[in-house]
Computed example of a mutant assay.
Amino acid sequence: MRFSRNATGTLFVGGALTLTLAALAYPSMLGVSTVTTSPDRVIANTQWGPLTESDRDFVVKVRAAGLWEYPVGQIGLKKGTNKGVLIASQHLIDGHSALDTTCRKIAPMLGITLPNLASPQQQGFVNTLNSDSGAKFDNDFANILRVTHGSIFNTVAKIRSTTKNSLVRALADQANNTVLDHITVMEKTGLVNFDTALFTQTTPPKLPKVDLTPPAPPAGQPEVVLTPPPNATSTPVDINGISGGAAAPSPTPTVG
């Protein structure tokens, strides 16, 4: 089997296109300012527990994932020719609209600025699938999304097991269920190349940080909303159940 990479980090396997998801990293401009690169550093103290750099970046990652996977689900409903792809497309729209609702609720409570666009790499996934058709679309759809969900799954588990912030923990619970569901429906398409998926997840290309970073929204730009489908089955986190319905004071930044 022949492996090669181009300058943008695209992986070609035996002539078939499979896109990779490199380790996701998001800059301080999207959240509370940082002065170190320690993911465990507390950047704000909130009534729901301390907020670390990794907590902040996780909320941004979940938002960014929805900003490309939700439209890919819409594309899949129009272009998919495989029944499993059509089902998976519905799951993408359903799951990410619910996750997005949770992100947009907790972000202002934690002082986190959310992007309105996915990263350039993620937008590249959308462009690739937009240009595909027929069986090639189905194959690229299943494999790109199986790789990306497989890559983020470990991140979700780590945040869930380490965060001391109850809002971030609740988002991680929801993300864990959603990502596992999406991994499962991709595999049920019967199109996933597991050898390639494992190779791609464990040996991601080293892309420039700018390619992996969703741009910060311009000041005053309306927030993009991922609208739930009419028959939605996924539900956002009950924030009132966590916060007790109390008004949230502004997080207190931690200097250091």
Score class of each variant (00 low, 15 high):
Ala25Arg: 07
Ala157Pro: 00
Leu180Gln: 09
Thr102Gly: 07
Ser161Glu: 15
Thr46Phe: 03
Met109Arg: 14
Thr203Glu: 04
Val126Thr: 12
Ala216His: 06
Ser89Leu: 04
Thr178Arg: 01
Gly245Asn: 07
Pro205Tyr: 14
Asp57Trp: 00
Thr128Leu: 03
Leu110Ala: 11
Ala23His: 12
Val255His: 08
Thr10Ala: 15
Arg146His: 11
Leu207Gln: 03
Gly15Val: 01
Leu67Val: 05
Pro205Ala: 14
Glu223Leu: 10
Ala175Asp: 09
Val42Pro: 01
Thr34Asn: 11
Val156Asn: 03
Thr163Asp: 09
Gly73Val: 05
Pro50Asn: 12
Lys206Leu: 13
Lys61Pro: 00
Phe3Lys: 15
Ala44Thr: 03
His182Trp: 02
Ser38Thr: 09
Lys105Ser: 14
Ser38Pro: 01
Lys61Arg: 10
Thr233Phe: 00
Gly245His: 07
Lys188Ala: 15
Gln221Arg: 11
Thr37Val: 09
Leu19Pro: 05
Val62Lys: 01
Met1Arg: 13
Asn143Gln: 08
Glu69Phe: 00
Val60Trp: 03
Pro108Gln: 14
Pro115Gln: 10
Asp211Pro: 00
Ile239Phe: 11
Asp100Gln: 04
Pro249Asp: 12
Thr34Val: 14
Ala135Tyr: 04
Phe3Thr: 13
Ala118Tyr: 07
Ser119Gly: 06
Leu21Lys: 09
Thr163Asn: 10
Pro115Asp: 10
Gly95Gln: 07
Arg63Tyr: 02
Val72Gly: 00
Ala232Gly: 06
Ala135Glu: 11
Val35Cys: 10
Ser151Trp: 00
Met1Ala: 13
Val192Pro: 02
Pro249Ser: 11
Gly14Thr: 05
Phe125Asp: 07
Leu212Asp: 01
Leu24Pro: 00
Thr102Leu: 08
Gln47Gly: 00
Gly95Glu: 04
Gln121Lys: 12
Val168Met: 11
Ser243Ile: 04
Leu21Arg: 13
Arg5Asp: 09
Arg5Met: 15
Ala44Asn: 04
Asn127Trp: 00
Val156Thr: 13
Ile183Asn: 04
Arg169Glu: 09
Ala170Ile: 06
Ala25Thr: 12
Ala64Leu: 02
Leu19Ser: 07
Ala65Lys: 01
Asn139Ser: 14
Val32Arg: 08
Asp94Phe: 00
Asn82Pro: 05
Val35Thr: 15
Ile183Gln: 15
Thr235Val: 14
Asp211Lys: 13
Val156Arg: 01
Lys79Thr: 06
Asp138Ser: 05
Arg2Ile: 02
Thr102Pro: 02
Tyr26Arg: 11
Thr101Asn: 07
Ile242Tyr: 12
Leu17Tyr: 00
Gly66Tyr: 01
Pro230Ser: 15
Asp238Lys: 09
Gly244Tyr: 05
Ser97Val: 02
Leu212Pro: 01
Ala219Thr: 12
Pro217Ser: 14
Pro71Asn: 10
Ala22Phe: 01
Asp57Gln: 15
Lys79Trp: 04
Ala23Leu: 08
Leu207Met: 13
Gly150Arg: 04
Arg5Ile: 13
Ile106Leu: 15
Pro253Ile: 02
Ala216Pro: 08
Ala246Val: 10
Pro217Thr: 10
Gly256Met: 10
Thr34Ala: 13
Val42Arg: 07
